[in-house]
Every structure is written in C-alpha cells, then in structure tokens.
Simulated scan of single mutants.
Amino acid sequence: MNSRTLGADLNVSAIGLGCMGFSHAYGPPTEDDEAIQAIRTAFDMGYTMFDTAETYGTAEDPHHNEKLVGEALKDVRSQVQIVTKFGIRFDKTSKAVNKPLIPDARPETIRASVEGSLRRLQTDHIDLYFQHRVDPKVEPEAVAQVMADLIREGKITHWGISEVSEDYLRRAHRVCPVTAVQNRYSMMARWHESLFPVLEELNVGFVAFSPMANGLLTGAYGKGEQFDPKLDYRSAMPQFTQEAAKKNQELLYLLQGLAVQRNATPAQISLAWMLCKKPWIVPIPGSRKTERMQENAGAADIVLTNEEVAAIDQALSSIPMSAVFGGTEVVSRETK
C-alpha cells in the first residue's frame, strides 16, 4: 500500500485499520485468536497504521483492544505504527448502549494511562498518542507539556488530538507540535472541513474515523436492518432508522453509480474521495472481516481528479441526507 506522512515525519499506510470493533461498539466481540489473526492479515496486506484506545474493551476487560493489538503486532513492531488514546472514561451509570464520555486529561491521569497502554501493547513507545477528547477543565498548554515530556522520555514519538477546535489546536501546537487530529469525517459528516486550512498552515495531518458513516456508505445495510440494542452503537444511530433508509437512497445511488464507473465498490469510492482531497488525510475504517480489509486497501489505488472530487462535493451538498451520528455525549467529571 502507498504511504502518507502525517505532520512532519510520521509515515503511515495510506489507509489505517481501526481496531475498535474487534472488542467494542459493534456487537459481540470477536474471539481473541480470530481478531489477532485478522490484524496480522491486515499487516500482510500492507496496513502499517493500527488504531486502538485504552477504553476500547469489553464488560469483562475494559482494556481488551489494546491487548489484542499488542499481541498481534509484537513480532513486527518495528514495521508498524501503533496509535492509541488517553483522556476519557465511560459513564458506567448510564443505561445507554453508547455511554457518555467523561474527559480527564489531568497530568497524573495521562501518566497512568501511558504506562498502562505501553504494558498492554507490549511496546516501549507509542507512535501516535491521541488525546481522545478535550477536557474543558485542563488547559491545552498543560496537556501539550505532558506530551512534550513523554516525547523527551521516549514513551511516545508523536501526539495528536481528537475532536479538537481550532483554538485548542493552536494553543497546544505552540507548546508541543501536533502531528495529527483525529476527527469524524465521511461523505455524510463534513463539518470538520472548515479546519483543513488550519491543518495545512500548521502541517498537521488528519486521521478520519468513521469514514463510511459507521458502515452505511458501504451499501451493505438494507432497509429494516436490526442491531443489538445492548452491544451495538448502530442501534441508536440516526442514519440506520427506517426513515433514514428512504432519505439516503439518492446518496447511495450516487455512490453506486460512481463505483460502477470506476469498477470499484461504494466503500472504495467513499475512501478514495477523501484520500484524493488532501495528501495528508488518512482514513481508518474499522472492519473485522479480512475481505473488507482487502476491499478498503484497494481504495488507495483509485485516483480521482480534482474535478471529479469537486463534482462529488457539489453533489453531496445538494442531495438529501438523513442525520448522521455525530459523536458520543461528553459529560463533566465533576458530576460523575
């Protein structure tokens, strides 16, 4: 697979693998042996960037996903870039399937988190360490200073921020250069495009999570799709309702038509569209099936011209779409 550079010097595969779904949020977790084999198969396909987080886990093991990633990649560690995250915990008192997030970026919390992640990932350093959500009670300069210290100590080599505003990014970047932001981005969720000029100015990369709107843009989900209301976040996402299925027909027809023209799949067109917008965008689709990983990897070979991307953008701005899941609720740690 082709590679891309995030920030000044972090070289990664053009498409990364989001590993969360093996443990969390998309139904029952995958059996450990099967998940580890799938992650290794992705490496064999050319994926080098693997995204996880300390909070991606199961009811029995809240840190399950990092352990899977660490075990799968331990003998190829020098050939991959491991991405993990700190700074949130779940509100366990909530009965919702998608439990609210409680941010905590206090320096002592970060220190405990990085040590735990290093141990579970079976590594001596993290290639890209993301602040999972902004903590309004901790100034960006304070977080950035901890990152600078961790880089100096060799525990991380690069850092980033997820779901970040321009002001927070600029303030943090002045203390310790940010390598990438990780934000939700897809044909249905384009609100972070306003941040692109700032990213170009600061030489900060963009890691796109949920690049296919939680799977909707693959075209694989039909009307009346049922998801486990206890284990699957999609059961509560607005793009998977009966009403949304009708409203999104034109969008899916657009994708299918583009896919036919390119002898590709809708998923590949969804990824190619963002890859061809900017050379510093790296999508991290999550899949547990190796055939889907292979399909997604193929998107890196599809080249759309600037004119084709602009035409797609224009179409996306004019056709009807349902609401799309925009992120998990964040609550204050003061009340939890």
Results as ranks from 00 to 15, higher is better:
Leu6Glu: 11
Ser13Pro: 03
Ala14Asn: 09
Thr30Gly: 06
Glu31Asn: 08
Ile36Glu: 08
Thr41His: 12
Phe43Lys: 05
Met45Thr: 01
Gly46Ser: 04
Asp51Lys: 07
Ala53Gly: 11
Gly57Gln: 05
Glu66His: 13
Lys67Leu: 12
Leu68Lys: 06
Glu71Trp: 00
Leu73Lys: 00
Gln79Ser: 10
Phe90Ser: 10
Arg106Lys: 13
Arg106Asn: 12
Thr109Pro: 06
Arg111Val: 07
Leu121Glu: 12
Leu121Arg: 11
His125Met: 06
Phe130Gln: 14
His132Lys: 14
Lys137Val: 11
Val138Phe: 11
Val138Cys: 13
Pro140Gly: 09
Arg152Ala: 15
Glu153Ser: 13
Glu153Val: 06
Glu163Gly: 15
Asp167Glu: 14
Arg171Ile: 02
Thr179Trp: 00
Asn183Thr: 06
Arg184Glu: 15
Glu193Ala: 03
Glu193Pro: 01
Glu193His: 02
Pro197Cys: 04
Pro197Ser: 05
Val198Ala: 14
Glu200Ala: 14
Glu201Tyr: 07
Val204Ile: 15
Gly205Met: 10
Phe206Asp: 10
Met212Gln: 13
Asn214Asp: 12
Tyr221Leu: 06
Phe227Pro: 03
Phe227Met: 03
Lys230Gly: 08
Lys230Ile: 01
Pro238Asn: 09
Gln239Trp: 01
Thr241Met: 08
Lys246His: 11
Asn248Leu: 09
Asn248Glu: 06
Gln249Gly: 02
Gly257Met: 04
Leu258Met: 15
Asn263Thr: 08
Thr265Cys: 09
Ser270Leu: 03
Leu275Lys: 07
Ser287Pro: 04
Arg288Ala: 10
Lys289Met: 05
Glu291Met: 08
Met293His: 03
Glu295Pro: 07
Gly298Leu: 11
Val303Thr: 15
Thr305Ser: 15
Thr305Arg: 09
Asp313Ser: 13
Thr335Met: 04
Thr335Glu: 11
Lys336Asp: 03
